[in-house]
């Protein structure tokens, strides 16, 4: 074998190994798990990852820029509740969706401003806003689920487009949009540059603060949007929705090869990471494995994924 083909194979391996793992898992599960490879189950699987998938888009940006966002789980609940309360009080579905999404954006803006302009640590800042907005969700809902009276709202989460549930279509569109944003725009490349070396990025003329504020605000909007869709699917706003979601999203990104140190991210990796997370739960459900064991399996998969990532980096 010539050196160039060798290095090409190595390149493919280091950059796309996770896709290979995904394909192998998919084939094995299709063969050995009954009902796994059916249309119905595939749609169910895709639906189950919509919330994680939507938020993974922007989480990828936050991680790629070298930061974390732990607040997304509370943002989902907070915007779902906000949308529900607005719809019930005004009767306007459109206004409810709009304000719900904006509420998410507000959380993101607070995060971004605190981190970029006040120089606070991202981990601590978003941990704080996670608590604050979980609390706000409980306050706005008086601690109870807020049932929504307008049936029109449910079409967002429960309708079909060409035989595919609308949330899945929305998720796929966003995967495509954020993929382009990451690979084909100055913004995406700047994000990676900031994560790779913040100081060098600044000296190269990148407006680091502004980029970070935009990333976190976008993250807030996406979490808000995901929260509204979730409320629509559940026909109510739930103050305790999506607890622990932030870790699932970060896990999916890390599985997909996003570096926790920043500077490295691919959209294809993140999509596969999201699907692997969903596939594991889905298969375990089909096999009737109790939820308690599922946590153990998912945690173990994450550990293995991170270890593979380290092996990959060492081999470079």
């Amino acid at each position: 074998m010539t050196d160039t083909t060798k290095s090409k194979i190595k390149y493919l391996y280091t950059n796309y190994s996770i896709i290979l793992i995904f394909l192998i898992m998919f084939v094995l599960l299709s063969i050995f798990v009954p009902y796994f490879f059916t249309w119905r189950n595939m749609v169910g699987l895709a639906l189950s990852v919509v919330t994680i998938g939507l938020i993974a888009n922007t989480m990828m940006f936050a991680l790629a820029s070298g930061d974390f966002d732990l607040s997304v789980s509370s943002t989902v609940a907070f915007s779902g509740i906000t949308a529900a309360v607005i719809i019930n009080n005004t009767g306007s579905v459109g206004l409810g969706i709009l304000v719900g999404v904006l509420a998410g954006g507000l959380v993101g803006l607070i995060n971004g401003f605190s981190i970029a302009k006040l120089g606070l640590n991202a981990l601590i800042t978003t941990l704080a806003t996670q608590m604050i907005f979980r609390g706000m969700a409980f306050i706005f809902s008086n601690g109870r689920a807020v049932g929504i009276s307008q049936a029109g709202f449910f079409t967002l989460g429960n309708s079909m487009v060409f035989g595919i549930p609308t949330p899945i279509v929305i998720m796929v569109i966003f995967f495509a949009l954020f993929g382009i944003l990451l690979n084909n725009t100055v913004f995406g490349k700047n994000t990676l540059a900031i994560g790779g070396n913040t100081k060098a990025a600044e000296l190269a003329g990148i407006n680091v603060d502004l980029t970070k504020i935009i990333i976190f605000t976008a993250q807030g909007f996406m979490a808000g949007f995901a929260g509204v869709i979730l409320a629509s699917r559940m026909t109510s706003g739930q103050p305790n929705a999506a607890q622990g979601l932030e870790l699932d999203v970060i896990s999916a990104c890390v599985l997909g090869g996003v570096s926790l140190n920043g500077g490295i991210a691919t959209m294809s990796g993140v999509v596969v990471g999201v699907l692997i997370m969903g596939m594991i739960s889905n298969a375990l459900n089909l096999l009737n494995v109790a939820t308690f064991y599922q946590y153990v399996v998912r945690g173990s998969v994450l550990l293995i994924a991170i270890y593979l990532d380290i092996l990959k980096q060492r081999s470079k």
Partner: peptide
Amino acid sequence: DEGIIGIRSVSENINVS
């Protein structure tokens, strides 16, 4: 520490601005 973005490619480092 301040010049190159080490984990990105030569091409990206050249084109960053």
